[in-house]
Amino acid sequence: MEFINLVLIAPILDMAEYPAFFLEVVFGGLMSGVMYSLVALGFVLIFKASGVFNFAQGVFALFAALTLVGLMTGTMPFSLEKILPEFPAWLAIILTFLVMIGLAVAVERLVLRPLVNQDQIIMFMSTIGLAFVLEGLGDTIWGSEVKALDVGIPTGSFNVGEIQVQVFDLWAAGIAAFLVVVLALFFQWTRTGRALRAVADDHQAALSVGIPLKNIWIIVWSVAGLVALVAGIMWGSKSGVQFSLSLIALKALPVLILGGFTSVPGAIIGGLIIGVGEKVAEVYWGPLVNGAIENWFAYVVALIFLLFRPQGLFGEKIIERV
Protein backbone atom coordinates (compact mmCIF):
# COMPACT_ATOMS: atom_id res chain seq x y z
CA MET A 1 0.00 0.00 0.00
CA GLU A 2 2.83 2.33 0.88
CA PHE A 3 4.49 1.50 -2.43
CA ILE A 4 1.33 2.38 -4.38
CA ASN A 5 1.08 5.62 -2.46
CA LEU A 6 4.70 6.53 -3.17
CA VAL A 7 4.62 5.67 -6.86
CA LEU A 8 1.09 6.52 -7.93
CA ILE A 9 -0.59 8.80 -5.46
CA ALA A 10 2.04 11.04 -3.84
CA PRO A 11 3.49 12.43 -7.12
CA ILE A 12 0.01 13.25 -8.45
CA LEU A 13 -0.97 14.93 -5.18
CA ASP A 14 2.28 16.87 -5.34
CA MET A 15 1.40 18.14 -8.81
CA ALA A 16 -2.06 19.13 -7.66
CA GLU A 17 -0.80 20.84 -4.53
CA TYR A 18 1.77 22.98 -6.37
CA PRO A 19 0.24 23.59 -9.80
CA ALA A 20 2.51 26.55 -10.57
CA PHE A 21 5.60 24.42 -10.13
CA PHE A 22 4.03 21.63 -12.19
CA LEU A 23 3.41 24.13 -14.98
CA GLU A 24 7.01 25.27 -14.74
CA VAL A 25 8.19 21.67 -15.08
CA VAL A 26 5.96 21.19 -18.13
CA PHE A 27 7.14 24.44 -19.64
CA GLY A 28 10.78 23.51 -18.97
CA GLY A 29 10.13 20.15 -20.62
CA LEU A 30 8.64 21.82 -23.69
CA MET A 31 11.67 24.07 -23.98
CA SER A 32 14.06 21.11 -23.69
CA GLY A 33 11.91 19.30 -26.22
CA VAL A 34 12.41 22.10 -28.71
CA MET A 35 16.17 21.65 -28.38
CA TYR A 36 15.82 17.89 -28.99
CA SER A 37 13.63 18.57 -32.01
CA LEU A 38 16.33 20.76 -33.51
CA VAL A 39 18.71 17.82 -33.51
CA ALA A 40 16.09 15.31 -34.65
CA LEU A 41 15.17 17.52 -37.63
CA GLY A 42 18.59 16.99 -39.20
CA PHE A 43 18.17 13.23 -39.03
CA VAL A 44 14.67 13.40 -40.50
CA LEU A 45 15.69 15.56 -43.45
CA ILE A 46 18.42 13.23 -44.58
CA PHE A 47 16.39 10.10 -43.94
CA LYS A 48 13.45 11.52 -45.88
CA ALA A 49 15.55 12.31 -48.92
CA SER A 50 17.98 9.44 -49.03
CA GLY A 51 16.82 6.74 -46.65
CA VAL A 52 20.12 7.11 -44.81
CA PHE A 53 20.24 7.31 -41.04
CA ASN A 54 23.02 9.88 -40.69
CA PHE A 55 24.98 8.80 -37.64
CA ALA A 56 27.18 11.88 -38.13
CA GLN A 57 24.40 14.44 -37.56
CA GLY A 58 25.59 15.20 -33.99
CA VAL A 59 29.13 15.66 -35.26
CA PHE A 60 27.77 17.94 -38.00
CA ALA A 61 26.40 20.19 -35.26
CA LEU A 62 29.76 20.11 -33.49
CA PHE A 63 31.69 20.82 -36.68
CA ALA A 64 29.41 23.72 -37.56
CA ALA A 65 29.72 25.21 -34.07
CA LEU A 66 33.52 24.80 -34.07
CA THR A 67 33.75 26.55 -37.44
CA LEU A 68 31.48 29.34 -36.26
CA VAL A 69 33.52 29.97 -33.10
CA GLY A 70 36.74 29.78 -35.10
CA LEU A 71 35.49 32.47 -37.50
CA MET A 72 34.12 34.67 -34.73
CA THR A 73 37.37 34.55 -32.77
CA GLY A 74 39.71 34.98 -35.74
CA THR A 75 41.38 31.63 -35.18
CA MET A 76 43.80 30.42 -37.81
CA PRO A 77 42.87 26.83 -38.70
CA PHE A 78 45.44 24.19 -37.65
CA SER A 79 47.84 26.62 -35.93
CA LEU A 80 45.05 27.89 -33.60
CA GLU A 81 46.66 31.31 -33.35
CA LYS A 82 44.18 34.16 -33.18
CA ILE A 83 45.65 36.23 -35.99
CA LEU A 84 42.76 36.44 -38.47
CA PRO A 85 40.08 39.14 -38.44
CA GLU A 86 37.17 38.41 -36.10
CA PHE A 87 33.93 38.18 -38.04
CA PRO A 88 30.68 39.49 -36.57
CA ALA A 89 28.22 36.75 -35.64
CA TRP A 90 25.87 37.26 -38.60
CA LEU A 91 28.68 37.07 -41.14
CA ALA A 92 30.32 34.12 -39.38
CA ILE A 93 26.98 32.27 -39.49
CA ILE A 94 26.68 32.84 -43.25
CA LEU A 95 30.27 31.75 -43.83
CA THR A 96 29.75 28.67 -41.68
CA PHE A 97 26.70 27.77 -43.73
CA LEU A 98 28.86 28.00 -46.84
CA VAL A 99 31.37 25.67 -45.20
CA MET A 100 28.51 23.24 -44.44
CA ILE A 101 27.47 23.38 -48.11
CA GLY A 102 31.07 22.57 -49.04
CA LEU A 103 30.94 19.68 -46.61
CA ALA A 104 27.70 18.46 -48.22
CA VAL A 105 29.38 18.51 -51.65
CA ALA A 106 32.34 16.58 -50.26
CA VAL A 107 30.06 14.01 -48.62
CA GLU A 108 28.12 13.51 -51.85
CA ARG A 109 31.29 13.14 -53.95
CA LEU A 110 33.39 11.05 -51.58
CA VAL A 111 30.87 9.05 -49.56
CA LEU A 112 27.44 8.84 -51.15
CA ARG A 113 28.08 8.74 -54.89
CA PRO A 114 30.29 5.63 -54.73
CA LEU A 115 27.57 3.91 -52.69
CA VAL A 116 24.50 4.57 -54.87
CA ASN A 117 22.15 1.56 -54.84
CA GLN A 118 24.04 -0.12 -52.02
CA ASP A 119 22.12 -1.47 -49.05
CA GLN A 120 20.98 1.09 -46.49
CA ILE A 121 23.12 -0.58 -43.86
CA ILE A 122 26.22 0.18 -45.96
CA MET A 123 25.17 3.83 -46.21
CA PHE A 124 24.60 3.88 -42.46
CA MET A 125 28.03 2.40 -41.79
CA SER A 126 29.61 5.01 -44.02
CA THR A 127 28.08 7.77 -41.88
CA ILE A 128 29.64 6.18 -38.78
CA GLY A 129 33.01 6.50 -40.50
CA LEU A 130 32.13 10.04 -41.50
CA ALA A 131 31.38 10.91 -37.87
CA PHE A 132 34.83 9.80 -36.71
CA VAL A 133 36.59 11.55 -39.58
CA LEU A 134 34.74 14.82 -38.96
CA GLU A 135 35.36 14.64 -35.22
CA GLY A 136 39.08 14.18 -35.76
CA LEU A 137 39.14 16.84 -38.46
CA GLY A 138 37.33 19.34 -36.24
CA ASP A 139 39.83 18.66 -33.46
CA THR A 140 42.79 19.12 -35.80
CA ILE A 141 41.48 22.29 -37.43
CA TRP A 142 40.00 24.12 -34.45
CA GLY A 143 41.55 22.56 -31.32
CA SER A 144 39.77 20.72 -28.54
CA GLU A 145 39.51 23.16 -25.66
CA VAL A 146 36.10 24.35 -24.47
CA LYS A 147 35.08 27.45 -26.41
CA ALA A 148 32.50 29.98 -25.31
CA LEU A 149 29.91 30.80 -27.97
CA ASP A 150 27.89 33.99 -27.84
CA VAL A 151 26.01 35.02 -30.96
CA GLY A 152 23.99 37.57 -29.04
CA ILE A 153 21.03 35.45 -27.96
CA PRO A 154 19.73 37.08 -24.77
CA THR A 155 19.97 35.12 -21.52
CA GLY A 156 18.59 35.60 -18.03
CA SER A 157 15.07 34.97 -16.79
CA PHE A 158 11.82 36.62 -15.79
CA ASN A 159 8.81 35.53 -13.79
CA VAL A 160 5.24 35.06 -14.98
CA GLY A 161 3.44 34.70 -11.69
CA GLU A 162 5.38 32.01 -9.87
CA ILE A 163 6.76 30.49 -13.05
CA GLN A 164 10.30 31.36 -14.05
CA VAL A 165 10.86 31.65 -17.78
CA GLN A 166 14.36 31.62 -19.27
CA VAL A 167 14.80 34.09 -22.10
CA PHE A 168 17.21 31.82 -23.97
CA ASP A 169 14.57 29.06 -24.06
CA LEU A 170 12.04 31.40 -25.64
CA TRP A 171 14.52 32.34 -28.33
CA ALA A 172 15.31 28.68 -28.95
CA ALA A 173 11.61 27.93 -29.34
CA GLY A 174 11.13 30.88 -31.70
CA ILE A 175 14.11 29.93 -33.86
CA ALA A 176 13.01 26.28 -34.02
CA ALA A 177 9.47 27.28 -34.97
CA PHE A 178 10.77 29.55 -37.73
CA LEU A 179 13.02 26.81 -39.04
CA VAL A 180 10.19 24.28 -39.13
CA VAL A 181 7.89 26.65 -41.00
CA VAL A 182 10.60 27.38 -43.57
CA LEU A 183 11.37 23.67 -44.01
CA ALA A 184 7.70 22.74 -44.29
CA LEU A 185 7.16 25.39 -46.97
CA PHE A 186 10.31 24.27 -48.77
CA PHE A 187 9.27 20.61 -48.86
CA GLN A 188 5.63 21.26 -49.69
CA TRP A 189 5.68 24.13 -52.13
CA THR A 190 8.98 24.26 -53.98
CA ARG A 191 10.01 22.24 -57.01
CA THR A 192 13.18 21.14 -55.23
CA GLY A 193 11.18 20.12 -52.20
CA ARG A 194 8.92 17.91 -54.31
CA ALA A 195 11.97 16.41 -56.01
CA LEU A 196 13.42 15.66 -52.59
CA ARG A 197 10.27 13.78 -51.62
CA ALA A 198 10.34 11.88 -54.90
CA VAL A 199 13.92 10.78 -54.30
CA ALA A 200 12.98 9.69 -50.81
CA ASP A 201 10.21 7.46 -52.17
CA ASP A 202 12.31 5.72 -54.80
CA HIS A 203 15.81 6.58 -56.11
CA GLN A 204 15.41 4.67 -59.36
CA ALA A 205 11.98 6.08 -60.16
CA ALA A 206 13.17 9.60 -59.41
CA LEU A 207 16.17 9.15 -61.71
CA SER A 208 13.93 7.77 -64.47
CA VAL A 209 11.85 10.95 -64.52
CA GLY A 210 14.95 13.12 -64.75
CA ILE A 211 15.57 14.17 -61.17
CA PRO A 212 19.34 14.58 -60.73
CA LEU A 213 20.12 12.45 -57.71
CA LYS A 214 23.53 13.94 -56.94
CA ASN A 215 22.18 17.51 -56.85
CA ILE A 216 19.31 16.47 -54.64
CA TRP A 217 21.66 14.83 -52.19
CA ILE A 218 23.88 17.91 -52.06
CA ILE A 219 20.82 20.07 -51.38
CA VAL A 220 19.45 17.86 -48.65
CA TRP A 221 22.80 17.44 -46.90
CA SER A 222 23.27 21.22 -47.10
CA VAL A 223 19.86 21.78 -45.51
CA ALA A 224 20.77 19.23 -42.83
CA GLY A 225 24.01 21.18 -42.40
CA LEU A 226 21.97 24.34 -41.83
CA VAL A 227 19.85 22.57 -39.22
CA ALA A 228 23.05 21.24 -37.62
CA LEU A 229 24.41 24.79 -37.54
CA VAL A 230 21.30 26.05 -35.75
CA ALA A 231 21.42 23.10 -33.31
CA GLY A 232 25.13 23.70 -32.77
CA ILE A 233 24.51 27.37 -32.00
CA MET A 234 21.70 26.67 -29.54
CA TRP A 235 23.39 23.76 -27.73
CA GLY A 236 26.86 25.32 -27.97
CA SER A 237 25.57 28.54 -26.42
CA LYS A 238 24.37 26.51 -23.43
CA SER A 239 27.38 24.30 -22.81
CA GLY A 240 30.25 25.87 -24.69
CA VAL A 241 31.52 24.31 -27.90
CA GLN A 242 33.34 21.10 -27.13
CA PHE A 243 33.39 17.52 -28.26
CA SER A 244 30.58 16.30 -26.06
CA LEU A 245 28.35 18.42 -28.31
CA SER A 246 28.36 15.52 -30.75
CA LEU A 247 26.57 13.43 -28.10
CA ILE A 248 23.44 15.55 -28.45
CA ALA A 249 22.54 13.07 -31.19
CA LEU A 250 21.67 10.66 -28.39
CA LYS A 251 18.91 13.00 -27.28
CA ALA A 252 17.37 12.82 -30.75
CA LEU A 253 17.02 9.04 -30.88
CA PRO A 254 13.95 8.67 -28.67
CA VAL A 255 12.42 11.65 -30.47
CA LEU A 256 12.91 9.86 -33.80
CA ILE A 257 11.52 6.60 -32.46
CA LEU A 258 8.47 8.47 -31.26
CA GLY A 259 7.95 10.92 -34.08
CA GLY A 260 8.95 8.71 -36.97
CA PHE A 261 12.03 9.00 -39.14
CA THR A 262 10.31 10.69 -42.04
CA SER A 263 8.14 13.36 -40.50
CA VAL A 264 9.16 16.96 -39.79
CA PRO A 265 6.06 17.57 -37.60
CA GLY A 266 6.86 14.21 -35.95
CA ALA A 267 10.30 15.47 -34.95
CA ILE A 268 8.72 18.54 -33.37
CA ILE A 269 5.81 16.86 -31.59
CA GLY A 270 8.04 13.93 -30.62
CA GLY A 271 10.61 16.29 -29.14
CA LEU A 272 7.98 18.08 -27.10
CA ILE A 273 6.47 14.84 -25.76
CA ILE A 274 9.88 13.44 -24.86
CA GLY A 275 10.95 16.73 -23.26
CA VAL A 276 7.86 17.00 -21.06
CA GLY A 277 7.78 13.27 -20.28
CA GLU A 278 11.35 13.04 -19.09
CA LYS A 279 11.23 16.25 -17.02
CA VAL A 280 8.01 15.32 -15.27
CA ALA A 281 9.37 11.82 -14.60
CA GLU A 282 12.69 13.13 -13.28
CA VAL A 283 11.16 15.73 -10.99
CA TYR A 284 8.27 13.67 -9.58
CA TRP A 285 9.44 10.06 -9.79
CA GLY A 286 13.24 10.45 -10.00
CA PRO A 287 13.76 11.00 -6.25
CA LEU A 288 12.19 7.57 -5.57
CA VAL A 289 15.16 5.88 -7.25
CA ASN A 290 17.95 8.38 -6.50
CA GLY A 291 17.31 10.39 -9.63
CA ALA A 292 18.99 10.51 -13.07
CA ILE A 293 16.15 8.65 -14.77
CA GLU A 294 15.40 11.14 -17.53
CA ASN A 295 17.82 9.71 -20.09
CA TRP A 296 16.42 6.21 -20.06
CA PHE A 297 12.88 7.31 -19.32
CA ALA A 298 12.82 9.08 -22.69
CA TYR A 299 13.25 5.68 -24.32
CA VAL A 300 10.52 4.19 -22.15
CA VAL A 301 8.12 6.85 -23.41
CA ALA A 302 9.20 6.19 -27.00
CA LEU A 303 8.87 2.43 -26.65
CA ILE A 304 5.38 2.70 -25.13
CA PHE A 305 4.31 4.69 -28.19
CA LEU A 306 5.91 2.10 -30.45
CA LEU A 307 3.74 -0.62 -28.92
CA PHE A 308 0.71 1.10 -30.41
CA ARG A 309 2.24 2.80 -33.48
CA PRO A 310 5.32 0.91 -34.68
CA GLN A 311 5.94 3.50 -37.41
CA GLY A 312 6.03 6.30 -34.85
CA LEU A 313 3.50 9.07 -34.40
CA PHE A 314 3.74 10.48 -37.92
CA GLY A 315 5.98 7.95 -39.68
CA GLU A 316 4.91 6.32 -42.91
CA LYS A 317 3.26 2.94 -42.55
CA ILE A 318 5.14 0.60 -44.85
CA ILE A 319 3.22 -2.36 -46.22
CA GLU A 320 5.30 -4.79 -48.24
CA ARG A 321 3.47 -7.60 -50.05
CA VAL A 322 5.01 -11.05 -50.02
Binding site: F21, E24, V25, G28, M31, S244, I248, V283
Partner: peptide, 21 residues
Protein backbone atom coordinates in the same frame (compact mmCIF):
# COMPACT_ATOMS: atom_id res chain seq x y z
CA UNK B 1 19.35 17.13 -1.23
CA UNK B 2 21.17 14.76 -3.58
CA UNK B 3 20.68 15.40 -7.30
CA UNK B 4 22.27 13.05 -9.84
CA UNK B 5 23.13 14.15 -13.38
CA UNK B 6 23.68 11.48 -16.02
CA UNK B 7 26.72 11.39 -18.29
CA UNK B 8 27.66 13.59 -20.02
CA UNK B 9 25.41 16.24 -18.42
CA UNK B 10 24.57 18.27 -21.51
CA UNK B 11 20.94 18.58 -20.42
CA UNK B 12 20.17 19.49 -16.79
CA UNK B 13 16.86 21.27 -16.84
CA UNK B 14 15.18 18.77 -14.50
CA UNK B 15 18.00 19.16 -11.99
CA UNK B 16 17.71 22.93 -11.98
CA UNK B 17 13.94 22.81 -11.73
CA UNK B 18 14.45 20.87 -8.51
CA UNK B 19 16.94 23.50 -7.36
CA UNK B 20 14.26 26.14 -8.02
CA UNK B 21 11.84 24.21 -5.91
Amino acid sequence: TLLAVDHPGQEQKATWLQIRR
